[in-house]
Write a protein that binds this DNA or RNA. Structure first.
Lengths: 137, 137
DNA sequence: TTTAATTACTACTCTAAGGTAGAATTAACT
DNA sequence: AGTTAATTCTACCTTAGAGTAGTAATTAAA
């Protein structure tokens, strides 16, 4: 019961970029070293973030990445969805098909409460809002 | 962000056993067929549950499984812990080392609230309490 | 005493996530 | 023009979870 490494890395990468938005571009090298994420794995993630339009890349010497979409418009929920890591609304916590209000699994009611709160939290956490504030990345 | 299949299966297995506690023993075959869990995978799980003392097995013809520990004393949290699937108290949601109240990760405060509620829910959900009530298993 | 039904053990296979390697491409700097 | 620092592409390796296969061990019933 935890996030995938890819999601964790992505949240930290984007938060780092917000915290350094004074720089016009941030390189993969800088991200990898400062966030302690394997370089090759990081670049793979960055390419994906570019392809979905969250960030933009400038190739070649002095190149790097910058936001294409506003950090205030990218939520943690968006990131989890991108990497198929989100809590799907229809998915039963016990893996039962067609678990709903009429035909509940054993944990249904208790889980719903926690699930709703979690989803809300992920949706309301924009990258802009969670960065800064002297938090560790 | 979901439970492992092993945890899901185990919760359903034990809930089924509570719902059929009139029978002195329940076989792997019955569990596998009624819960739609692959037979060989199920027996592997059962052996593990026996080894940690949750249930007891009777081998040979007419054999099967029964509770050793009371269903009211086995919680969902116990099951998640057994299969290394629980939300560890010290583990940071972003995977940062030494993330705590003094040195918080970007999601720390928001995550803590959800985490505490989830953990409480898992701890308070005994197998006895979630079984029955006409719920699907 | 044999047979059938049962759990337990050992050893695989398959898949996806996580991670690595090397070369190709791009563009600024000298 | 050549060098260098950067992203991108293609392909691979490793590991853990999920699931399968075959057989041994056990025990009640026939």
């Amino acid at each position: 019961m935890q996030l995938s490494n890819t999601s964790k890395y992505t949240i930290r990468i984007l938060a780092y970029m917000v915290n350094h938005k004074d720089k016009p571009l941030i390189s993969a090298k800088e991200l990898s070293e400062n966030l302690n994420i394997p370089y090759k794995f990081l670049t793979k993630i960055m390419t994906e973030l570019v392809s979905v339009g969250f960030i933009e890349s400038i190739r070649g010497r002095e190149g790097g990445y910058k936001f294409l979409k506003k950090a205030s418009e990218i939520t943690v929920s968006d990131i989890l969805t991108l990497f198929n890591d989100s809590i799907k609304d229809e998915a039963c916590i016990l893996g039962i098909d067609f678990c709903d209000a009429k035909h509940k699994c054993a944990l249904h009611d208790k889980w719903i409460k926690s699930k709703v709160q979690l989803q809300k939290m992920f949706r309301e956490s924009t990258i802009e809002s969670i960065a800064g504030e002297g938090s560790k990345i």
